[in-house]
């Protein structure tokens, strides 16, 4: 068992290395450069730009820069932002909680909606609900999230004026203005109303794919012999579905969730942009626009670590849910 996880860990570090190399090369080969944004500025001369590039160490050959970056990163130093001059790690850690908050909330929405839809569709196959769910998940998967986002902003923020169109919290929000008794609810609602729209938009494609997957997984399990056994032993149908079948149907879904994680991060980038959510995704977009390479690399690496850890977690969950998977493997 220990051996197995050592191997996983080695693979994880190797993946991180390859990801960093590829990302660095991709950034290196993309047009423009860190100094490109100053070219049009009449107050900054060519000589200034050369001096700045030297200061940032940009005049060195790319392989050397990569090794310097790698050496510093291994030591926990992700460098400084060209834009703000602040440490990259600080910039990211400031934004990471907002992204994690959005993703966690969205993840729970996805699960809470997708799993029951999948179960109901499977147990009521070819019903009206099943057809509607199929159409809905098809839409959720195929229509772009910025379109949904703008539609939701139009309906709920502009037209109905129920929810704020963007941001994470009202700047002047002051919980102490409310009586102690209702204060927790006020705080909860204050957070939720900002979260609701971006989290729903971010959930749509997950709900689409997970509910379909849950349906087919459930159908597959329901036709298994052990379900027949449970029924033949007098287990009531509700328990057959929600205990015997569900437990087995969830196992493959966990793997899918792990695989969907990168898409989830990518979705967060777009969603944060639409809803002015002050998370890592927005930082990424502005850093990409400004060619702030250190920040870009930092975000890519942190995301990669999170995705790989997420997959590790999914793997552990799978092992927990399916006793047949042996630990030696």
């Amino acid at each position: 068992m220990g051996n197995r996880y050592l191997r996983r860990l080695a693979t994880l570090f190797f993946s991180l290395f390859v990801i960093s190399l590829l990302s660095f090369a991709l950034i290196e080969f993309s047009p423009g450069g860190a100094m490109a944004r100053y070219v049009e500025n009449p107050n900054i001369s060519q000589a200034d730009r050369t001096r700045m590039a030297e200061r940032f160490g940009l005049d060195r050959p790319a392989p050397l820069r990569y090794f310097i970056w790698l050496r510093n990163t291994v030591q926990g130093d992700l460098g400084t932002s060209f834009m703000t001059g602040r440490p990259v790690l600080t910039e990211i850690l400031e934004r990471l909680p907002a992204t994690l908050k959005l993703m966690t909330f969205s993840f729970f929405i996805s699960i809470i909606v997708a799993i029951p839809i999948g179960i109901y569709s499977a147990t009521h196959r070819h019903s009206l609900f099943d057809h509607l769910a199929a159409t809905g998940s098809f839409l959720g998967l195929s229509l772009p999230s910025f379109w949904f986002g703008l539609l939701m902003i139009y309906i709920f923020a502009i037209w109905l004026n129920w929810l704020p169109s963007g941001g994470m919290i009202t700047p002047w929000f002051d919980p102490s203005a409310y009586p102690l008794l209702i204060r927790p609810f006020v705080i909860f609602w204050e957070h939720t109303r900002y979260l609701l729209m971006p989290a729903i938009v971010l959930s749509l494609s997950n709900i689409g794919s997970w509910s379909r997957y849950m349906r087919s997984s459930m159908l597959d399990v329901i036709s298994q012999n052990y379900i027949q056994t449970a029924r033949a032993n007098g287990v009531p149908e509700r328990k057959v579905v929600y205990k015997h079948a569900l437990r087995n149907a969830l196992t493959p879904l966990v793997t899918l969730m792990g695989l969907d994680l990168p898409g989830f991060f990518a979705g967060a980038v777009v969603t944060e942009q639409i809803f002015a959510w002050p998370g890592m995704g927005r930082l990424f977009i502005s850093a990409a626009g400004n060619r702030d390479y250190q920040v870009l690399m930092g975000i890519i690496m942190i995301t990669a670590v999170l995705v790989l850890l997420g997959n590790l977690l999914a793997d552990l969950m799978y092992r927990f849910l399916d006793p047949r998977v042996n630990y030696e493997g």
Binding site: Y226, V235, R247
Partner: peptide, 20 residues
């Protein structure tokens, strides 16, 4: 079912729930 009349099946390998 299971208390007055019960049934066992052909395939013992798949007739028990693998998760419990």
């Amino acid at each position: 079912r299971g208390s007055e009349i019960s049934m066992i099946f052909q395939e013992p390998s798949s007739a028990l729930n693998p998760a419990f």
